[in-house]
Design a binder for these strands. Structure first.
Length: 376
RNA sequence: GUGGAUGUAGCUUAGUUGGCCUAAAGCGCCAGUUUGUGGCACUGGAGAUCGUGGGUUCGAAUCCCAUCUUCCACC
């Protein structure tokens, strides 16, 4: 259940209530594809980095360890030890990212497993069943994330198929939520807007899925190589069409600057692998821009990654030590860096919410939108 | 002092029947890429007058002479 608290321009301050807790929005989802944030963070670490909601992946957990196993062991919350909200991505992104290993047809998608090559079929019903077995808070509809650029005619047909798949997802979820042994009978369903970078397809598609009265609306298929101006234009085009009383989720985005621009255009929810992936490569977010801790200039730097940062890493450790650990390929180095970057992202969202509460978001936008994505 | 071995990029080494060497690799260094995670990844760059000085040769990291470094053995 989404509740809009206040608006500044198109930017929205709200809260989203679920059976696993309430999320203050705008919010960032911490990505735990295989049931764990890469870099060695456990459920007990998530509170320290102010994580509100986690994202796990249907395809990856279906492949390993298997959704039936997770259901038998009590569901994803019990399995991972995280009792807050969990959103599961549907496998739709793997239609894009595993493009060489799959074939699409009306019923669904045939994958060759990326680990051992065995055949996996996933359609709307299969994705919903897996997500129901996982018992996540929010299930995403099974869609096709189309590559960029894509021909208009293909984008149109794919978009129409994604709508047909969405209707099948909704029917299957209603059935699953009414079964006696379903782990989370209150599982929510978000639909996903597609249409590549074609404004008319995007707007028409959003109109159609808005009629289905879903629990939330996502904008998918962006940040897949298109110029960021296209991304911002599409968000602005579909924003007025998405139901105002439902949460809006911009999938897979992005840099701190992307997030600020997204909030500016009405987005409530984000997720992205960048903070964790970049952290593993030594690229660390600060309020002055991005530093590469591997650089020689940090060899004897006794300061924390960012002075004034309250993250667990900066409370205790120097740049010199963090750099040493990464250079020495110690797993603690990854953990400390991922901890810092995810804390930064969650803190960024907190600062955005504070700015909205204080009606200073426009100033916040102008001050930080460029600098946070700059390399220093 | 005598005999032997050694010397090629910051480091560790490859290359020594003279020509494909305007010298190669790994690590390190530097820079870039990363957006619903097939990624602890990938791409690129800088960096060596081959210990030094002579010589032989059309041509030398490679052969010869001298000299220095380091190491080993013997006295």
């Amino acid at each position: 259940m989404y509740k809009l608290i206040k608006k500044q321009g198109n930017a929205r301050r709200g809260e989203f209530t679920t059976v696993h807790g309430t999320v203050q929005t705008p919010a960032f989802q911490n990505v735990a594809t295989c049931g764990a944030i890469k870099g060695g963070l456990s459920a007990y670490d998530l509170k320290d980095i102010n994580c509100q909601v986690q994202l796990c992946n249907t395809y990856h957990l279906h492949v390993r360890p298997g959704d039936q196993l997770i259901k038998d062991l009590g569901g994803l919350h019990k399995f991972t030890g995280w009792d807050g909200p969990i959103l599961t991505d549907s496998g739709g992104f793997q239609v894009f990212s595993l493009a060489k290993l799959r074939k699409i047809r009306e019923e669904g998608v045939d994958f060759n497993c990326h680990i051992d090559g065995h055949h996996i079929f996933m359609g709307p019903e299969e994705s919903m069943r897996i997500q129901s077995n996982l018992g996540s808070t929010i299930a995403m509809a099974f869609d096709e994330c189309v590559e960029n650029p894509a021909p208009y005619e293909y984008a149109k047909q794919s978009c129409e198929r994604t709508t047909r798949w969405l209707i099948r997802c909704k029917e299957e979820m209603n059935r699953l939520n009414s079964l006696p042994d379903t782990i989370n009978k209150n599982q929510l369903l978000f639909g996903i807007n597609q249409g590549c970078t074609y404004d008319d397809l995007r707007m028409k598609h959003m109109e159609e899925i808005a009629k289905l009265d879903l629990d939330g609306y996502a904008i998918g298929g962006l940040a897949v190589g298109e110029p960021k101006e296209d991304m911002y234009r599409i968000i602005s085009a579909v924003d007025p069409i998405a139901p105002a009383d439902k949460i809006r989720y911009l999938m897979g985005v992005g840099t701190p600057g992307n997030i600020i621009e997204g909030v500016y255009r009405g987005v409530d929810l984000f997720d992205c692998v960048m903070p964790s992936r970049n952290a593993r490569h030594g690229h660390l977010n600060t309020w002055n821009g991005i530093i590469n801790i591997n650089n020689a200039k940090y060899e004897r730097d006794e300061r924390p990654i960012e002075e004034g940062c309250n993250c667990p890493t900066c409370q205790k450790h120097s740049r010199a030590y963090v750099r040493h650990l990464l250079k020495a390929k110690e797993v603690l180095g990854l953990r400390l860096c991922v901890t810092h970057n995810l804390y930064f992202y969650n803190n960024l969202m907190q600062e955005i919410r504070n700015a909205l509460d204080n009606d200073t978001f426009d100033e916040f936008h102008d001050k930080y939108v460029d600098i946070l994505d700059t390399r220093i």
